[in-house]
């Protein structure tokens, strides 16, 4: 049995599964919710690496807050959850209140590029850049500026480019893991009912200047 922060990994997954997803997802913002079992696995990875317990976490582009709530569940000292979408943040906050986690999470409606709080760890699922090429890069750049460790999910097709992008900035990838996202037909431009979409998780050690 795998325990993290006093709860079973499977139980964390179940708690995360009941977070409601976007009611009216925006294609421009590429609001795809992270599946609960993948979020739980990523949180588990960050936890065993010592990047969550008693740490300050930021979830940049938090959406409905799966990483923010998940981090709070397993013992983060404080979580900063920001998103540009007012409705998503309000929803995330409601979920946090319902689960008595609101005290450890600060929610803010904010453009990621304006975020300036120093944190220990960033855990995020930025836009994949399939609607707007490179849309994930400002999220990564911001994460490098404000944290010591970053866990971030990207389109697996861009892995080579991103590895170079990270290395060029002087940071190092210590963890890579591929997952399949099942993307259901949500937007008019989706041709299939559902489609498997391969993503890659990067765990990045940020080099401080």
């Amino acid at each position: 049995m795998v325990y993290i922060g006093g709860i079973k990994k499977k139980d964390l997954e179940i708690k995360l599964e009941t977070i409601s997803s976007y009611s009216d997802p925006s294609p421009q913002l590429e609001q795809y919710s992270t599946p609960a079992h993948i979020a739980a696995d990523i949180l588990f990875t960050a936890y065993v690496n010592g990047h969550i317990k008693d740490k300050i976490i930021a979830d940049l582009g938090c959406g409905t807050g799966i990483f923010a709530l998940g981090s709070a569940y397993i013992g983060a000292e404080k979580v900063k959850a920001i998103d540009i979408d007012e409705d998503a943040v309000a929803k995330a906050k409601r979920e946090a209140k319902k689960r008595s986690l609101a005290n450890s999470i600060d929610f803010k409606i904010q453009d990621v590029t304006k975020f300036r709080t120093k944190v220990d760890t960033v855990i995020m699922n930025p836009p994949f850049g399939s609607q707007k090429k490179g849309a994930d890069l400002p999220f990564l750049e911001k994460a490098f500026k404000v944290s010591d460790a970053v866990y971030s999910i990207h389109n697996a097709k861009t892995v080579d480019f991103l590895e170079n992008f990270i290395k060029d900035k002087g940071h190092s990838v210590f963890w890579e893991k591929r997952y399949m996202f099942e993307i259901h037909h949500m937007f008019e431009f989706h041709k299939k009912k559902k489609e498997d979409f391969e993503v890659i998780l990067f765990g990045i050690n940020v080099k401080r200047e």
Binding site: I84, K93, F107, K108, I109, D111, K114
Partner: peptide, 8 residues
């Protein structure tokens, strides 16, 4: 609003 500052 509802405890969330809108910094946009």
């Amino acid at each position: 609003k509802d405890g969330i500052p809108n910094m946009i």
